[in-house]
Write a protein that binds this DNA or RNA. Structure first.
Length: 849
RNA sequence: GGACCCUUAGCUCAGUUGGCUAGAGCGCGUCAUUGACGUUGACGAGGUCGGAGGUUCGAGUCCUCCAGGGUCCACCA
């Protein structure tokens, strides 16, 4: 025996991973039906967090399992340039150096960030290896790889050519801190308390006035009209007249628009097309040109001099004071309203007008919706499929433009002489190009990163170019976080259908957030982040996998639990020691022999393992990872270790023990890849790798023998139970009169039940073991027996309650008629058995008395 | 404003189409024991499944309402 007593994961994991990787175990073999998962690419220059561990370990689990099931399986890794995230980090770096983005050209910035990311790269990939994630590393795709850009461009052109891409002045969500716009979905709305101010706009003769209600008085200099509902009797007469815009000498008209809600505020809306999306639409309808009064840096422009250049917040205060001075304020009310914030810095998102590139989403969404309704893609949990459908119903056009240098340049050029003339051209390295004699200037914006990552499944498989991995498209499963269902999953579906004319994957599995042990969201600011690498150092990679997969269901945010990681570590150690025991029994020179079950324990364990394999099959088919993990845990710990191994100490069947160990390792491998492979490598009868083994097939056994063992278990359990209740720590002798099971397995029963002996007698004495229904007695003296009386009484009461319940159930005619016959029969059988038990217990009590 | 989810043992959570006496890990109690494993073994205690109705022979599971917690979506100034 050269294996140490305890499994030390850190000692083996790196070597095992290196063996897999260098031997090409993660590379698809080209045989069998393709099975593919494309990894949601983690940030190339970041570290993995515990949510990544869950995500990637689930993906790896699926791929390992399907590989063993004979599929041509691949897990395609990725790395994300994480446009905005990385840019924010880099801009902070610049700040530290006392520089800003304006000190450099776009090309300079791009190459600086590239170097910055390059320095950090590799961490994440090492961490994936530590997690045991068996990715096909040569197929890794970085989101700024040339082929990603190529595909993004061809898709953009396709959409452009068919008119789905348009450039337009629209209200965009602009972060004045980060100097970029966001898609609607990226804006974080928070409900806040605000103030609704009422402000009087005087008529031209200054005799009457109309009172508007607004939460943003500072935008009043951008007002181009006052709007009321056309049917609002209070204001009907005023429609078409002009009022004076306070603090200015500008006149604006009163217009009628259905959009105005007469019950809100004063029923009068100030129309500020440049700074509110609704007002923008009202303005368009009434052909009113917007006036921008907040600049892209968040300060005031186009205002009277005293407000010029002030930050918007400050301007608001001063405007209110100025209005007060002119006695134009007509009260205020506090309201709760949703305010958009930048999800990164938390500052208020300004709705501003900007020329941006948009995709018309309605047609894409319709197509995706049909596919989802037809269940061309299934979801776990299914409720998320319905959620996506609902999202698609209300989708708005997608703003693709980002004012961030770190990203894929938008391949568009504008005619210097004619601003409305835009052309598609991929020469994005040129500032200006000449086409047909006209000079065109390059668009300075980059794509929203989701535009390229939305095409990830067919990019990573080179499907459009029919590369070597093209057979892996569509992907088998998209496994990702429920939090990016809309920004990512929905878009992959839409773009996949659009570009490849097929769904990008056939199943979506969504995991929830891993919360901290108290159920709180993990965040750096809270300081409650669990680093998966530290967990691996402390407990091992398999322990982390088992712990994080256990008791977790799809789509639910659930707490991390160290106790489950500990349980996982203990399980690995258990498996290790099962192997140690078996290897010790077999000896170092063991040569494999065809296994054949001989003892009743042998037949039973073969049946159990068959059952476990098929249970895991059906659970994984439904993505019930936690239950599958629990199944293998209990099979190995209880059935194999506590019963089979213990039995084997009495009756050794080397070939079968070896086969049982092999089967356990295979079944457990997707859930605990490192320890199982480590053990496999120590087995003298294998010179290959576990990772490449086929999933266990059904092995033959004898059902009668297996059932015998079950009866033996029942007897042993009863003996243990009764003995535990008896006073003192004595060892007892089991007596039997005529019982073949006991006679044939006397030594085994003695060992399992820790008895002094098992003896055949002609006249039984002592305490009869009633519950297991055997002709067997524990040889106890009268005094002990007397002390045991209360236990007998207690069990008698329990048995009588059960009889009462069964009797009433069976006397219910509806039950007998409507319940499935098997259930009724079961109840009847149980009633008979329990009645017999009562007789025996009663008899025992009579003897004592 | 809309939608979805959660509430089960002390803690963290499972529980497919309704099926009988609701499970796991950890924790807790009693006991055992130096040779596979103390990262162990045996035995046990602990839950009227958030509350109230309803459907059903039968409800943790389906329906309605209520309470508490959470998430997502949303252009009411």
């Amino acid at each position: 025996m050269n294996l140490p007593k305890a499994y030390d994961p850190n000692k083996y994991e790196p070597n095992i991973y290196a063996m897999w990787e260098t031997s090409g175990a993660f590379v698809p073999k080209g045989q069998g039906d393709p099975y593919s998962i494309v990894m949601p690419p983690p940030n190339a220059n970041g570290n993995l967090h515990i949510g990544h561990a869950l995500s990637f370990q689930l993906e790896d689990l699926l791929v390992r399992y399907h590989r063993m099931k004979g599929r041509d399986a691949i897990l395609i890794p990725g790395a994300d340039h994480a446009g905005f995230e990385t840019w924010v980090v880099y801009e902070k770096e610049l700040q530290k150096q006392g520089k800003s983005r304006f000190d450099f050209s776009r090309e300079q910035l791009y190459s600086q960030v590239w170097d910055f990311v390059d320095q950090q790269r590799g961490n994440m990939e090492l961490q994936l290896r530590a997690l045991g994630v068996g990715a096909s590393w040569n197929d890794l795709v970085f989101t700024l790889d040339e082929k990603v850009i190529r595909t993004a461009y061809s898709t953009f052109k396709k959409l452009w050519d068919e008119g789905s891409i348009y450039r337009g002045e629209r209200i965009v969500n602009f972060c004045t801190v980060h100097q970029t716009s966001f898609a609607d979905i990226e804006v974080e709305h928070k409900t806040e308390k605000g103030t609704l101010w009422k402000i009087a706009y005087p008529s031209l003769d200054r005799i009457t006035e109309i009172v508007v209600a607004t939460t943003r008085p500072e935008t009043m200099f951008g007002d181009v009209a006052i709007a009321v509902h056309p049917d609002d009797e209070r204001y009907k007469a005023l429609i078409g007249t002009n009022v004076l815009l306070p603090l200015t000498d500008r006149e604006i008209p009163i217009i009628a628009d259905e959009y105005v809600d007469p019950t809100f505020g004063t029923g009068v809306l100030k129309v500020t097309p440049a700074h509110d999306p609704n007002d923008f639409e009202v303005g368009e309808r009434h052909k009113l040109a917007p006036i921008q009064v907040i600049d892209f840096d968040g300060t005031m422009i186009n205002t009277p001099p005293q407000f010029l250049g002030l930050p918007a917040e400050e301007a608001r205060k001063r405007v209110l004071v100025a209005l007060e001075a002119q006695e134009l304020r007509r009260g205020e009310a506090s309201i709760e309203h949703a305010v958009g914030h930048c999800y990164k810095c938390g500052s208020v998102i300004q709705p501003l007008i900007k020329d941006q590139w948009f995709i018309s989403m309605k047609p894409l969404a319709q197509r995706a919706k049909q596919a989802l309704e037809a269940k061309e893609i299934t979801f776990t949990p299914d409720s998320k499929r319905l959620a996506v459908i609902q999202y698609l119903d209300t989708i708005r056009d997608w703003n693709l433009s980002r004012q961030i240098p770190w990203g894929i340049p938008i391949p568009a050029f504008q005619n210097e002489a004619n601003p409305d003339d835009w052309i598609y051209d991929e020469r994005v390295n040129e500032d200006r190009i000449v086409v047909n004699g006209a000079t065109y200037i390059r668009e300075s914006d980059t794509f929203d990163t989701w535009f390229s990552s939305g095409q990830w499944p067919f990019i990573a498989t080179d499907y459009l170019e029919q590369g070597p991995l093209a057979r892996f498209y569509p992907n088998s499963v998209m496994e990702t976080g429920a939090d990016i269902l809309y920004p990512w999953v929905a878009r992959m579906i839409m773009l996949g259908l659009k570009v490849t004319d097929t769904v990008p994957f056939t199943h979506v599995y969504l995991h929830g957030l891993v919360l901290d042990e108290n159920g709180q969201k993990m965040s750096k600011s809270r300081g409650n982040v669990i680093n998966p690498m530290e967990t691996i150092t402390a407990y091992g990679s398999d322990a982390l996998r088992l712990g994080v997969v256990a008791s977790r269901s799809a789509g639910q945010n659930q707490a991390f639990s160290t106790t489950k990681v500990v349980a996982g570590r203990n399980f690995c150690n258990k498996l290790w020691n099962i192997a140690r025991f078996i290897e010790d029994k077999l000896g170092e020179s063991y040569q494999p022999v065809a296994p054949e079950p001989l003892s009743i324990a042998d037949h039973w364990i073969v049946r159990e393992l068959n059952q476990t394999a098929s249970t895991i099959d059906s659970l994984l088919a439904e993505y019930r990872f936690a239950e599958a993990a629990e199944t293998i845990y209990h099979t190995i710990w209880s059935s194999v270790a506590d019963w089979f191994i213990e039995s084997s100490k009495q009756d050794t069947n080397p070939a079968l023990m070896a086969a049982v160990l092999d089967t356990c390792l295979k079944l457990a491998h997707p859930f605990a890849p490192f320890v199982t492979e480590t053990i496999w490598q120590t087995l003298s009868w294998h010179d290959d790798m576990l990772i490449s083994q086929p999933w266990p097939t059904v092995a033959p056994y004898d059902e009668i023998a297996a059932a015998e063992f079950e009866r033996l278990q029942k007897l042993v359990s009863e003996i243990r139970f009764v003995v535990a209740e008896l006073p003192g720590n004595k060892k007892y002798t089991l007596l039997y009169e005529s019982d073949a099971l006991i006679a044939d397995n006397a030594e085994l029963i003695r060992h399992l039940a820790k008895l002094a002996g098992v003896e055949h007698v002609d006249t039984p004495r002592g305490l009869q073991l009633a519950a297991s229904g055997r002709e067997a007695w524990l040889d106890i003296d009268d005094e002990t027996r007397y002390e045991h009386q209360s236990n007998l009484e207690r069990r008698l009461v329990e048995a009588r309650q059960l009889v009462k319940m069964l009797t009433s159930r069976l006397s219910n005619e509806n039950y007998v008629q409507k319940a499935p016959p098997a259930l009724v029969e079961e109840s009847q059988k149980q009633l008979v058995e329990t009645t017999e038990l009562i007789d025996k217990l009663q008899h025992e009590l009579d003897v004592v008395a």
